[in-house]
């Protein structure tokens, strides 16, 4: 098999994931795009490992070992990422990453920070009462 086939497919998949990370607004869709990028890298690792394992006499199969490590780390990443997204959704009521701009620079210094934070504490207090009422 020509090595260009898996390499080109991996490059195109990576750029698809790159577009998704940059263009999506929902945090879970961004996580899906990150998974696409990781899978593109995995395909590259496997293809080059198969090529090198036949081209060289001694091989450590480092590509396949790294692919397994990447898959495991991706599973851990998706678990932690979803826990963070759910915590943010519970506190803010949204998983829209365009609205999570608390650490953004270049905004009005006395603008949304003060009333917004008090508003948010009021909101969480209200949610607390609601949780107590339902619990």
């Amino acid at each position: 098999m020509h090595l260009a086939y898996p390499a080109v497919l991996s490059a195109l998949l990576f750029c698809t994931g790159l577009y998704g990370v940059l263009a999506r607004r929902n945090a879970i869709l961004v996580l899906m795009s990150v998974e696409l990028m990781l899978n593109a890298v995995n395909l590259n690792l496997v293809a080059f490992d198969v090529w090198l394992s036949k081209a060289a006499r001694e091989t450590l199969h480092s590509g396949q070992a790294l692919t397994l490590f990447t898959i495991t780390i991706a599973a851990a990443e998706i678990g932690i990422g979803l826990a963070i997204v759910l915590a943010v959704y519970r506190n803010r009521g949204t998983s829209d990453i365009d609205k999570l701009r608390d650490t953004a620079e270049g905004r009005a210094p006395d603008g949304p920070d003060g009333p917004d934070s008090t508003d948010r504490t009021a909101l969480t207090a209200e949610e607390t009462e609601k949780a107590e009422a339902t619990a």
Binding site: M1, H2, L3, A4, P6, A7, V8, A11, L12, F14, C15, T16, L18, Y19, L22, V46, A47, D49, V50, W51, S53, K54, A55, H61, Q64
Partner: peptide, 29 residues
């Protein structure tokens, strides 16, 4: 994304134009 895809595909195709994977024989994985 399109610029990155064009650059990556160009570089990859140019680099591995004459490289083939030997899939015969025992499975590598």
């Amino acid at each position: 994304a399109v610029a990155a895809a064009a650059a990556l595909v160009w570089v990859v195709v140019d680099a591995f134009r004459t490289t083939w994977i030997d899939l015969d024989g025992a499975a590598a994985g």
